[in-house]
Design a protein around this nucleic acid. Structure first.
Length: 483
RNA sequence: GCUGCUAUAGUGUAGUCCGGCCAAUCAUUUCGGCCUUUCACGCCGAAGACUGGGGUUCGAAUCCCCAUAGCAGCACCA
């Protein structure tokens, strides 16, 4: 039967997008990408797909304190996993000469001055709507000071280039914000120099130079959008169209790169792909498919409301994808051995690899009397169906090994009596498997055939979807995805 | 403190601009039932929301005001 495919909600149209767009994803290379990044990356990607155009990946590495050299490759890996249509890649660390050049031009246009005030003092004056003494410096002198900044004539914190905005602006955040700063350590992994542009400056210059037409970013950037407007105006440039979506949190996870790093360093987490983290690589390791992330993020959309994202919604998307492709296997958690009296000596079951798809074939499971493994929580007295095998009646055992008697082959019988149909394995033909879940590890046994599923998401029947993470002589490690 | 943004079911969303067709959409979730050699998938049904208070109006989720709550910015971070 054809299943009515759930339609992905349409994102609202963008203004001035009819002729195509140029959009960007601009991460700071401080660590791998997480779900928060995915929202920005996917939303922009979706619009580029809708309207056509270019999609620029801009690595915003203008703060050496927040650059993790390994992140350059991690970001690329994560984006590849997400499957975005990136058309251009630029590194801001390659563009410092441009920033200097436009910095000078901004000064020439009277839009900036070098401020050598103490930080605290400036802050106080700003809040009092007062101009600091440096504000009235002439253009030539400012150009000289700017050159001195670039040439290392100032120590860290001694000078900063400020954009001349409006000291009377009701929002203190708008008043004469900084555009360049001095930084002498740590060294930048990709460039030399001590004069660094601040985000609002480099972003404005690049958005213009790269021809960015539309920007979709979090609403924590609303103030930056307004600040950047001053720079656009000084240069006489047309700003892009902006959309700011709301803050997003995920239940039970921190989406802060620095906090995750701290947790990893403290040994709380095993690494960036620890499944308790909200990174994309953690999700991949758990068996979440990029399409699920994409759909979930598009579903959320670009609303300005702050949201608390629920794993349930992501899992539902993923289940939808994975259910169609995951092969089915038996996993017996916390196995106990039972002995069956009166049944056949040997039996072979051929359960389908995928119940909805007969073409996928079947696997072979042997039973050799009398021992079999079943989950400990099913080792209770009563009628049970060993799935695809036969029925048994478990007795009250007075020894360590529980006994059962053969109870026929009738499926209708167990159906009528509503007896549980449980998974089982022959102790002679199974392999140890540890299932890692956010709530702890579950030890058990699984079918030998699972060894052919390395890296795949499979379903352990009656347990849930899992991703086969590793296979070794000692056994299999699987990560629990979701039910 | 100053500035700004937001406010629909447990979660996410549609509707809000251009009041009536909204006793409010869809998905998820939960609970029933069906199907089924899985507690998956599928199908059927049910539950569950317009932050509060005023106002305008014949009529407000939609417009106005106030309040409350959450978030963000006021960094030599992005």
């Amino acid at each position: 039967m054809a299943k009515p495919r759930e339609q992905v909600r349409e994102l609202p149209d963008l203004e001035k997008a009819q002729g195509g767009v140029v959009m960007r994803f601009a991460p700071n290379p401080s660590g791998p990408l997480h779900l928060g990044h995915a929202r920005a990356a996917v939303l922009n990607d979706a619009y580029v797909h809708r309207y056509g155009g270019r999609y620029v990946l801009r690595i915003e590495d203008t703060d050496p304190k927040r650059v993790d050299p390994q992140a350059y490759t991690m970001v690329q890996e994560d984006l590849k996993w997400l499957g975005l249509g990136i058309t251009d890649i630029v590194y801001q660390s390659d563009r410092f000469d441009l920033y200097y050049q436009y910095g000078e031009e901004l000064i020439q246009r009277g839009g900036a001055y070098v401020c050598t005030c103490d930080n605290e003092r400036f802050k106080a004056m700003k809040l009092a709507k007062e101009a600091c003494p440096c504000r009235s410096t002439g253009i030539d002198e400012t150009l000289e000071s700017f050159k001195k900044m670039r040439d290392g004539g100032f120590e860290e914190g001694e000078a900063t280039l400020r954009v001349r905005t409006d000291l009377d602006h009701p929002d203190p955040a708008m008043r004469d914000f900084p555009a360049f700063r001095i930084l002498k350590s740590p060294p930048h992994p990709r460039m030399e120099g001590c004069l660094y542009p601040l985000m609002n400056f480099s972003v404005t210059v690049d958005d213009h130079l790269l021809g960015i037409t539309h920007v979709i970013r979090g609403k924590d950037h609303i103030a930056n959008t307004r600040r950047q407007r001053y720079i656009f105006d000084y240069f006489g440039w047309e700003p892009p169209v902006y959309r700011h979506y709301g803050r997003m949190g995920i239940e039970g996870v921190v989406l802060s790169t620095s906090q995750m790093r701290a947790g990893i360093n403290a040994g709380e987490f095993q690494g960036w792909d620890d499944i308790r983290l909200g990174t994309l690589r953690a999700m991949a390791r758990r068996g979440i498919k990029p399409e699920a992330v994409r759909e979930a993020v598009l579903d959320i959309g670009i609303g300005e409301t702050d949201i608390s994202f629920s794993w349930e919604n992501l899992f539902a998307k993923n289940r939808n994808i994975v259910d169609k492709i995951a092969n089915r296997y038996f996993f017996v958690p916390d196995p106990v051995e039972i002995r069956i009296k009166g049944g056949p000596e040997n039996w072979t079951a051929h359960p389908a690899l995928h119940p909805g798809d007969e073409k996928s074939g079947s696997r072979t499971l042997d039973y050799t009397a009398p021992a079999t493994l079943i989950p400990s929580n099913e080792a209770t007295p009563g009628l049970k169906r060993l799935k695809d095998l036969f029925n048994i009646e478990i007795h009250n055992g007075d020894s360590t090994i529980q006994t059962a008697t053969f109870a026929g082959e009738s499926l209708a019988d167990v159906r009528m009596k509503k007896a549980p149909i449980i998974q089982w394995l022959s102790p002679r033909n199974c392999i140890p498997c540890t299932l890692m879940t956010p709530d702890g590890d579950v030890h058990g046994m699984c079918e030998q055939a699972v060894k052919s599923e390395l890296g795949n998401v499979v379903q352990f029947e009656r347990v849930g979807f899992v991703r086969i993470d590793s296979i070794s002589p000692e056994g299999i490690i699987a990560y629990f995805t979701h039910r």
